[in-house]
């Protein structure tokens, strides 16, 4: 049976000699580095819960500082793409202010973050279903990259919680500046396994946290 990577779409076909089940638990996707557990049988039915509702209540109230930060950095990018450098700079300045103003999550821990990311991964199919039902192409599209990128981040954090610092020793961490895919290695991948941009689009994560 063939198995497909839910992050990058790589298909494992070991034939009779090396069936998927015979691979060690430490085996990783050769393309994107996702762990074995992120693979599913290629011909499998959609996972249970696809029809279910997201654990989300729609909300249209005022934006939070965190949302305004992301909104402004997104719009800054939108200006940059239109070669409006001055407007882009203004939006980035506002984004930086809101990022600093976003209330810190008091009880945040790596464990609670991991839990929240798992909830996101679980919610994507329902978001996707709502987008499809509304005929909203754009919303459906972002569910595809978003789910893959979040799945990867979630599995990396889960692994870190099991293995600790040893997992990252002598390694660099890279994030794709287009889709947010996170990669661990000495150098970034030649192509982003999720969105296919070239290596120079990757940014190295520094030990200090970027504003």
């Amino acid at each position: 049976m063939k198995y497909i990577c839910q992050v990058c779409g790589y298909v494992y076909d070991g034939g009779e000699e090396a069936p998927f089940d015979s691979l060690p638990e430490s085996w990783k996707c050769p393309l994107c580095g996702a762990p074995k557990g992120e693979f599913k049988p290629q011909e499998a039915a959609p996972p249970a819960g696809t029809e279910g509702k997201a654990q989300l209540e729609g909300e249209l109230g005022p934006f939070t500082a965190g949302q305004l930060a992301a909104l402004c950095s997104s719009l800054g990018r939108g200006c940059e793409k239109q070669y409006k450098a001055e407007e882009a700079g203004f939006f980035r300045e506002l984004a930086a202010w809101f990022t600093a103003a976003a209330p810190p999550a008091e009880e945040a821990s790596a464990e609670s973050l991991a839990e929240s990311l798992r909830r996101d991964v679980a919610d994507y199919p329902a978001l996707r279903a709502a987008a499809d039902a509304a005929g909203d192409r754009g919303a459906a599209r972002i569910c595809v990259w978003g789910e893959k990128v979040t799945r990867m981040l979630s599995s990396l954090l889960d692994r870190y919680l099991r293995e600790g610092e040893a997992m990252l020793e002598g390694q660099e961490i890279w994030a794709c500046s287009t889709c947010g895919f996170v990669w661990i290695g000495e150098a970034p991948p030649e192509l982003c396994p999720v969105c296919k941009v070239p290596a120079w689009k990757f940014e190295k994560a520094e030990g200090g946290v970027k504003a």
């Binding site: 790596a110 973050l113 990128v149 981040l153 990396l156 954090l157 870190y160 600790g164 610092e165 997992m167 990252l168 020793e169 660099e172 961490i173 890279w174 994030a175 500046s177 947010g180 895919f181 996170v182 940014e203 994560a205 520094e206 030990g207 200090g208 946290v209 970027k210």
Partner: peptide, 12 residues
């Protein structure tokens, strides 16, 4: 390691 991972998580 955790600092880097969290920086990547924030970016992503």
């Amino acid at each position: 390691g955790l600092r880097k991972l969290m920086a990547a998580a924030a970016m992503s």
